[in-house]
C-alpha cells in the first residue's frame, strides 16, 4: 500500500467519523466558482460564435492527398473544360463587341497574324489548344461510358484512364505536328 493511499483512507475516515476534526479545516477553505460569467446580449453571443468559428480548422488542402490517376484526371477534366469553354466565350464575346471597340477579329485577319508567327510558336500554340481539347473529348467519352454504369470499378477507372491518356497523347501529336 502506497503512502498516498494510506493518507487518503485516513482522511476519508477522518471526515466520516470525526466531523469535528473536519470542521476544524473549514475556515481555511476558499470557495470560488469554476468559471466567471458575464451577461451578454444575443447579438454579442452571436458575434462571439462567429469569431470562434473563424478560428476553426479548415478542411485540408488538396496537396495533402496522394496524387492518383483517379482524382487527377477528374480535376483535369474540369480544368480543361473551363479552359476550352473560356476560349469559346472569350472569342464569342470579343467578336460580339468587336465592331464597337474597333477590333478586327475576322478569321482572315487572325489567320494572317498567325501565319506571320515563327514555326516554333505556331507549334506551341497548336499544342496548347490541342492538349485540353483532346483530353476533354476522350475523357468526356469516358464519362459517357460511366453513365451507362460500365467500367465503374477501380480497375475499369484505371484501364479507361490509361486509354484516355494514350489517345490524348496520340491526338495531340497528330494535331500539333501533322494536321
Amino acid at each position: 500500500m502506497s503512502l498516498s493511499r494510506t493518507a487518503f483512507r485516513a482522511a476519508s475516515q477522518l471526515s466520516h467519523r470525526q466531523p469535528a476534526a473536519a470542521s476544524f479545516l473549514l475556515p481555511r477553505l476558499q470557495t470560488r466558482s469554476a468559471a466567471s460569467t458575464t451577461p451578454t446580449t444575443a447579438a454579442e453571443a452571436h458575434s462571439l460564435l462567429v469569431s470562434q468559428r473563424q478560428k476553426r480548422p479548415i478542411a485540408p488542402h488538396l496537396s495533402i492527398y496522394q496524387p492518383q490517376l483517379t482524382w487527377y484526371m477528374s480535376s483535369a477534366n474540369r480544368i480543361t473544360g473551363v479552359l476550352l469553354s473560356g476560349t469559346v466565350y472569350l472569342f464569342g464575346i470579343s467578336y460580339a463587341v468587336a465592331p464597337w471597340l474597333g477590333l478586327h477579329l475576322e478569321s482572315a485577319t487572325i489567320a494572317a497574324a498567325v501565319a506571320a508567327l515563327p514555326v516554333a510558336v505556331k507549334l506551341a500554340i497548336k499544342a496548347t489548344f490541342a492538349t485540353p481539347f483532346a483530353f476533354h473529348c476522350f475523357n468526356g467519352v469516358r464519362h459517357l461510358i460511366w453513365d451507362t454504369a460500365k467500367e465503374l470499378t477501380i480497375k475499369g477507372v484505371y484501364r479507361t484512364g490509361y486509354v484516355v491518356l494514350a489517345s490524348s497523347a496520340f491526338a495531340v501529336t497528330y494535331l500539333t505536328f501533322f494536321a
Partner: peptide, 16 residues
C-alpha cells in the same frame, strides 16, 4: 455572357 456569346457566334456564322 452566354447570350452575348450566342450573338457573337451568330455573327461569326453569318458574316464570317
Amino acid at each position: 455572357a452566354t447570350v452575348l456569346v450566342l450573338y457573337g457566334l451568330y455573327e461569326f456564322e453569318t458574316n464570317d
